[in-house]
Amino acid sequence: MKILVCITNVPDTTAKITFAESDTKLNKTGIQFIIGPYDDYALARAVELKEQNGGTVTVLNVGEAEGEPQIRKALAIGADDAIRVNAEPTDSYFVASQIAHIAQQNNYDLILMGRESIDFNSGVVHGLVGEMLGIPSFSPVMKLDIEGSTAKFAREIDGGKEYMEAPLPLVFGCQEPIADWKIPNMRGIMTARTKPLQVVEPVAVDDMAINEKYTQPAAKGECKMIPVEDVEKLVTLLRTEAKVL
């Protein structure tokens, strides 16, 4: 079984976000980058499926060279090889087009990724990739098993879970608890450097979206403590200041 896991290179969840170039770009100074947390779940499950069923796991990242430490980490966790599409990702359509282009050349049985990145959070790349390849895509998938050439999986829906089966090949956007995040061991780290990391140039794609400007969310107001016996004041403030009533 050939599995492709698409990973994003995103700011650490505790990073303080600021903008540069007149608020048109993320200020990367001092930011620690990580594998997207949802992608990390996808990678962990892919490695487990490989251990159970055999096969290979290829990691794909659409991004610049600064993301290679995250790719090496994915290799240390258990992926067999990696491909980096050497481009700054501009929008979801661009990223999906690059993934689809790589997938068309390699006939993967499974294409896994996070249900969304945690920087732009569009949550549409898996759907776009499925459409471009003409194969079904599902998200957010929280359980996945493979039996022969069939995937048995559960995805979250409003009010519960939906249990489904579908023949491979498939595209999945993953989330917890599909697997526990894996921490690479020392031997994995040392062997990661010997695993192939192929750098390819992107295919030309027209931009479908342009990010014109970023702004910070409004600063949180000061917390007001209202004594429990003063419910009327609370209601008044909720009505006149917070305007939620």
Binding site: A76, P184, I189
Partner: peptide
């Protein structure tokens, strides 16, 4: 560069472990 990258990955690994 190889030693620096390995060291950075080891540090990140231990950090992840310690946090969890």
């Amino acid at each position: 560069t190889e030693i620096a990258e390995n060291q950075a990955l080891i540090e990140q690994t231990v950090r992840d472990f310690a946090e969890r």
